Simulated assay, not measured.
Amino acid sequence: MATTKWAIDPTHSEIGFKVKHMMFTNVSGKFNDYEATIISDENNFENAKIEYSADIKSIDTGNTDRDNHLRSADFFDIENSPKMTFKSSSFTKVNDGNYDLTGKLNIRGVEKEVKFPVEFSGIMTDPWGNTKIGLNITGKINRKDWGLNWNSAIEAGGVLVSDDVRLNIELQFAKQ
């Protein structure tokens, strides 16, 4: 059976996340430098193989001091773990337009299995004749599962940074 390779279109993709700060507001961030590929059976995405990696140094929350703290050993520890990676083990169709993505997420050298719902936007041809697909991945992880443990208690009770990290990932791929 013939396979198709899909490469990420970074100008139409975003790897985004949100974390609660001081228990009541969200801080948003994204990774600016990343790579992702999909290998599928022609245009059938059931059991497609998906791989992703991001350069941790490209983390961007709109605040240089916070970004530098996130790069430090308190969080991502880019000196020892400069990349975050994901490799799928299954991509299973739930119903038209919806899939479950399961695989291994590696952060700080800690690898854990994760499962996320994926909205598949379909296959389209852009005005230049390129065949494209769109995926929206949402979900939540507990940052402490990967050793991102730093926190600080706040005077009013609670902590400065939530354990839960919500993901909002918009991906556009081009057929190769």
Rank of each mutant, 00 (worst) to 15 (best):
I107V: 13
E51T: 14
N26G: 07
D67G: 08
D145A: 07
M84V: 15
G16L: 03
V114I: 15
G157I: 05
G16Y: 04
I133D: 01
V118H: 09
I133Q: 05
T11M: 05
K18M: 15
R66Y: 04
S53D: 02
I154L: 14
Y99H: 14
Q172L: 04
V159T: 12
I50R: 12
T4W: 00
A48H: 09
T125I: 09
R71G: 10
S90R: 05
W150L: 09
M22Q: 04
P127K: 15
G134P: 00
D145S: 03
M23T: 15
G158E: 11
I56K: 08
I50F: 10
G134K: 03
I137Q: 06
G147R: 06
G134S: 04
K140Q: 14
V19R: 06
K57T: 11
G62M: 10
N43T: 05
F24G: 00
V159Q: 06
K5P: 07
A153Q: 12
I56Y: 01
W146Q: 13
H12L: 07
G157F: 06
E79R: 08
D126K: 07
K115L: 14
D9G: 00
E155R: 05
A174Q: 14
V114M: 13
E113I: 12
T102S: 14
S88K: 02
A54R: 08
P82G: 01
N44W: 01
G103T: 06
T11H: 01
W6L: 06
L167M: 05
T64Q: 13
V118I: 14
M124Y: 03
N68W: 02
G158S: 04
S58I: 08
W146E: 11
K175N: 11
W128P: 03
E35M: 00
R166K: 14
F86Q: 08
N168E: 10
T125D: 09
Q172T: 05
I38F: 00
V27Y: 09
N142M: 08
N44I: 02
D145H: 04
N142A: 10
T85H: 06
G129R: 12
I154D: 10
S88R: 02
K5T: 15
T3M: 12
A36H: 04
D9F: 02
G157N: 06
S152C: 02
L148A: 14
D41L: 01
R143G: 00
T3N: 13
S53K: 11
T138C: 04
F91E: 05
K140E: 14
A156K: 15
G129K: 11
V94G: 13
W150H: 11
L160C: 03
E79C: 01
D33E: 12
D145K: 07
F116M: 15
S13H: 10
I39C: 00
S40F: 02
S13M: 03
M84Y: 04
W150E: 12
K132A: 03
P127H: 11
M23K: 12
V27C: 07
I137W: 02
P127N: 09
F76Y: 03
F173E: 07
N149Y: 05
I78V: 07
A153I: 01
P82D: 00
N68D: 15
F31E: 01
N44S: 01
F17R: 10
K18W: 10
A73E: 07
T25C: 12
H12V: 08
T11K: 04
N106M: 14
N95G: 01
A73L: 01
A2H: 09
D74E: 00
G158T: 09
E113S: 13
